[in-house]
Write a protein that binds this DNA or RNA. Structure first.
Lengths: 338, 338
DNA sequence: CCTACTCACTTAATCGTTTTCGTATTTTTA
DNA sequence: TAAAAATACGAAAACGATTAAGTGAGTAGG
């Protein structure tokens, strides 16, 4: 099926191609009735612009690149990031942008770097999340002249949208403290900006509250790994003085802890309290509902899109900044009042 | 930053643009040493093709459109479909295709239909999943001349990849039957092809097995809705002869049932058995692990990509067919041996 | 009535490729 | 050795849009 082009419309209207272009794009030097007529005919003929031709001429694709992979290869199936992406996508679409994935170069037959891929496709801008930020290819992308917004990781001179992990962890610890807990353990995720922020905030808040955290209360398990949290939870429960509350890397990995706890015949929260991080749907619906920090994924995605598009459309006046999106304590039933 | 084009390469090499194009594309009428030289120079100069120009000329974008929305607006955050999409994406990338979302037209400023959007972007093909298949816009897309593959829904003359819901439900019912259950309830999802297949398979299998299903054992709740399954589960438990096993629309919605059951002080599976459908990670890890049908999302996505690309690259020899991907019973601990 | 503007449109170049059709040179064939 | 055929490359026209510059008709001003 042949696409109808401006040429066809111009022929049908008896005007030049330029006139059609201007009429359709709302240029001022076209008489109102001519414009209406052309629009009418174009519509009837089923005309739609050809994005490739438009992009070639204008150097604008109205297409945004999305770099969304992580070491655990969870990609789109990652609860947190899929929500952020969904929101990013909706916000971008509202402004007339489409989104395309920048792919893992290893998959590519002709292997391009992320940056090369972005240039090849002519993305107007790029959003980076959930990746290994130490990857040199990511660095290349960030240092390029493309508009870039990162999520949950700060680069020099770049805009970033971060979930407020410092305040989040702080609020969570405060909540737990106020519920009367003093023996608080934290199984934190693998090393990353996010983890560092949460961890240091955990220590700092505990110190402020005068809560002493023995070294064996702080352990590590990868994000979203129930097997590891299962093991670490066992170790915590085996301590001669076990914690009264355990904070997990994220909601998903909580379930590993829940398994370990209930296998010992212990009840949550009566015998042990637990808390997660993220606010994924299931954790907040399943009884006992999980006490957690709900990250505002909707806003994270929306702000990222807004910032990126602003960077694209008003490069002069848009400043690189860090936008911090607060989360909220969801007080489920998994932390007991002591 | 200026992109280096073939023109630049041709100037640097002292050959014509045509020669550069041919050399880079492996056309046969270029001397081997010239080709090597041009390739070398192009590489050094950091040349990369411009996809828009290429697409304009060849009418091939190596970009696939993905239509992935559903009435509950869960979009990317849908467990099942995000897994299928992830796999589709990986398979497509391996063959050199990128993927771009076809968006919900309501978001578009200049509202295009799905088909118009697909034509505008020049997608080589389109995959459709998780949408309201009765939407006239979807119909328009399916009836168009674009290569189309649908997931979990069959259209005339189109290729589709379906999860084998008939066999899946059959296997699940058989498993439950063999565990000794005779009073089996089924809370099915909202009406759709998927639901119809599962439901009729449920009835048929029960009949074959000589299991009588009283009408009040079959209820409806939307997919992924824990509140509704909670309510329906209560109704089932209130029956004078409650079921010994309840099958839910999907794993996620199972958790609504789990809540209802444990709130009554009943234990799973000792007092009531339950089963889900999907095989989402959490359900299979959390104790008692859920008995469910694991849909082969990896294969669904992969087959969809394979079929779509085949349709694009070998339109003559590729036939429209229905590819049925079987699932597997995951026998967790949520169905008790009676 | 002549000049100077506007207005509304057209001409033509251009974006970066691909591809058809030449054409000049070399190689093969009779 | 002359004609035919193969080889290696170039010129130029597209693809579908945008846009600067140009043009002719109508209007305004003096």
């Amino acid at each position: 099926m042949k696409m109808v082009s401006m040429k066809d419309v111009s022929a049908a209207c008896g005007v030049s191609i330029a006139t059609v272009s201007k009429a359709l794009n709302g240029q001022p030097d076209i008489k109102e009735e001519t414009r209406e007529y052309i629009r009418q005919v174009a519509k009837e003929m089923g005309y739609f612009p050809n994005s490739a031709a438009k992009a070639l001429k204008t150097n604008r694709t109205y297409n945004l690149g999305v770099l969304f992979t992580d070491e655990s290869r969870s990609g789109l199936t990652h609860d947190y990031f899929s929500h952020v992406l969904e929101s990013f996508k909706n916000a971008a679409e509202e402004k007339g942008y489409d989104i395309t994935f920048i792919n893992s170069c290893k998959n590519r037959p002709n292997k391009m770097s992320y940056l090369e891929h972005a240039r090849y496709r002519g993305f107007d801008g790029v959003v980076i999340a959930c990746v290994d930020f130490d990857d040199p290819q990511v660095g290349e992308l960030v240092k390029s002249s493309l508009p870039v917004v990162t999520i949950d990781h700060l680069f020099n001179n770049r805009s970033t949208i971060v979930s407020d992990n410092v305040k989040g962890m702080r609020d969570l610890v405060h909540y737990i403290y106020e519920m009367g807990h003093r023996r608080i353990a934290y199984i934190h995720g693998a090393d990353s900006t996010v983890t560092q922020n949460r961890l240091s905030s955990f220590y700092k808040t505990c110190e402020e509250l005068g809560v002493d955290i023995p070294p064996e209360y702080v352990r590590e398990a990868p994000y979203r790994d129930t097997k590891e949290t299962y093991v670490e939870t066992e170790k915590l429960l085996d301590l001669k003085e076990p914690p009264t509350c355990i904070v997990y890397p994220d909601d998903f990995s909580c379930f590993g802890g829940i398994n370990a706890i209930s296998e010992r015949g212990l009840k949550i929260p009566d015998d042990v309290s637990i808390a997660g991080y993220d606010g994924i749907g299931i954790a907040m619906q399943f009884k006992p509902r999980l006490t957690t920090i709900v990250q505002d994924t909707e806003r994270l995605g929306r702000e990222a899109a807004k910032k990126l598009i602003s960077l694209i459309e008003n490069p002069k006046t848009t400043i690189a900044e860090q936008i911090i999106v607060p989360g909220k304590v969801f007080s489920g039933e998994s932390v007991k009042k002591l």
